[in-house]
Design a binder for these strands. Sequence first.
DNA 1: ATCCCTTTGTGAACCGATGCACAAAGTCGC
DNA 2: GCGACTTTGTGCATCGGTTCACAAAGGGAT
Lengths: 225, 225
Amino acid sequence: MKSPSQPRDRGIPEATVARLPLYLRALHGMAERGIATVSSEDLAGAAGVNSAKLRKDLSHLGSYGTRGVGYEVEYLVYQISRELGLTQDWAVAIVGVGNLGRALANYGGFVSRGFRVAALVDADPEVVGDTIAGLNVEHIDDLEAVIARRGVSIVVLAIPAAAAQKVCDRVIAVGVTSILNFAPVVLSVPDGVDVRKVDLSIELQILAFHEQRKAGGPLMAVDSQ
Amino acid sequence: MKSPSQPRDRGIPEATVARLPLYLRALHGMAERGIATVSSEDLAGAAGVNSAKLRKDLSHLGSYGTRGVGYEVEYLVYQISRELGLTQDWAVAIVGVGNLGRALANYGGFVSRGFRVAALVDADPEVVGDTIAGLNVEHIDDLEAVIARRGVSIVVLAIPAAAAQKVCDRVIAVGVTSILNFAPVVLSVPDGVDVRKVDLSIELQILAFHEQRKAGGPLMAVDSQ
DNA sequence: ATCCCTTTGTGAACCGATGCACAAAGTCGC
DNA sequence: GCGACTTTGTGCATCGGTTCACAAAGGGAT
Ligand SMILES: NC(=O)c1ccc[n+]([C@@H]2O[C@H](COP(=O)([O-])OP(=O)(O)OC[C@H]3O[C@@H](n4cnc5c(N)ncnc54)[C@H](O)[C@@H]3O)[C@@H](O)[C@H]2O)c1
Ligand SMILES: NC(=O)c1ccc[n+]([C@@H]2O[C@H](COP(=O)([O-])OP(=O)(O)OC[C@H]3O[C@@H](n4cnc5c(N)ncnc54)[C@H](O)[C@@H]3O)[C@@H](O)[C@H]2O)c1
């Protein structure tokens, strides 16, 4: 008996990484509905991609399918989760508890995937000390201490653009290397630090561009998702 | 005297479209600080991209720079705005006024770019009739009427995943072709409809993947922004 | 055991996007 | 006016990602 298939290549394409959570979500839905096995065709359909792409993506993790049959749902959930690092739980701090930060703090969707909101931080004395989503809001002056104490490894920035770079520098200084930024500003960070940004306004502008094009000339419209 | 430079090619690469808002934001900042002219090098720096890419992107819109000098800030702002369709204003409806929908409704960042929140819609009788951010929350039963009455052309979905496809179908049925989806679900739409999705949970999972890699093997870390 | 049917895993062609490097174009100082 | 200098616009090589299409692998029926 030989080892069936090792994790293989350590270099997974970025585009693949970005789709793994999509597959995972689809698989969770299937597991809940009691589906034990799924073909690349069906899983690709559920995730909204084409089946060749799905198979190539999964092939980067290893050879986890069975020809003629498909993929075992539970097993694949485990493999993808492990690859994404979701078998451990991650402590997340949200800096900025305004409109957006509050919504994020109250959102249940993280916890379900191994992300735990471990700290809320704000600068406004009006807000500091409040309890939001069961957490005490701490003062920005204590940022470094809070990150250390709670073992935070991912920081979410939900503060005004003008304050983002400064806070960003501070969390990097205490060793944080993963940042999710909602402020509409380009953060400058050293190598080794990952910044992902979510910019609502950019999304709307892209939609407007296509919308205008559709209205202007009856040419073609592209679907992107 | 000949025409100096017409809008050129009508086929702008998707990757370029996605960066135009970034340039626009940087340019607005410069205009505010009274900068009249900017080189591709400086603008690229401010937008966090490399200068060759910036020049190629702008070349798709037309030849709006002056060799030896750079780009005139005001003029470029106008050209990019026009290309993105921001010279008209867009009526946006937000469906789902929960944690997230509320934050969006209260956010000032849209209006500044020609997007006007023209309607709020929800299914919860507890919420319908409330005034949020100066707008009356309307009932989901009136969705079609509200969209028509307010001239909505972009719909933002901030409702639970289970409800998203149904509402999506309804807005498409009354002619909406641009949707921004926050619900963690793959929407199925006909050709000609653009869906953009924002999925926080996916962003965190991507960060977790890289974070795990950094911790596990001291190999390399990629910066992405 | 053997054959047939299904579905995976992947080689190879293709496609769009990126980055280099430089000629062309224009400015500015004298 | 002219020459030196700056910066754009783009041709070209390259790269990462997508898609096609099929040989290889495995399951199930007989
Ligand atoms: N609300 C949205 O829907 C939305 C959408 C897209 C982008 N954004 C961006 O997200 C960020 C937050 O938006 P918001 O609507 O929640 O703003 P907000 O003004 O409601 O909240 C900002 C919070 O950050 C706090 N803060 C300010 N400076 C701080 C600092 N130095 N350290 C710690 N906390 C600080 C403030 O006290 C406030 O509580 C902004 O950059 C905004 O542009 C928001
Ligand atoms: N809150 C966040 O930070 C966050 C982050 C990422 C994704 N999301 C996603 O965004 C969506 C909204 O999140 P939320 O936290 O605001 O949820 P929420 O439960 O606070 O709000 C949802 C709102 O939608 C309304 N609604 C439900 N069904 C509806 C229907 N058929 N028509 C119209 N309205 C309906 C509800 O009455 C409620 O007001 C969810 O899909 C969630 O997964 C939220």
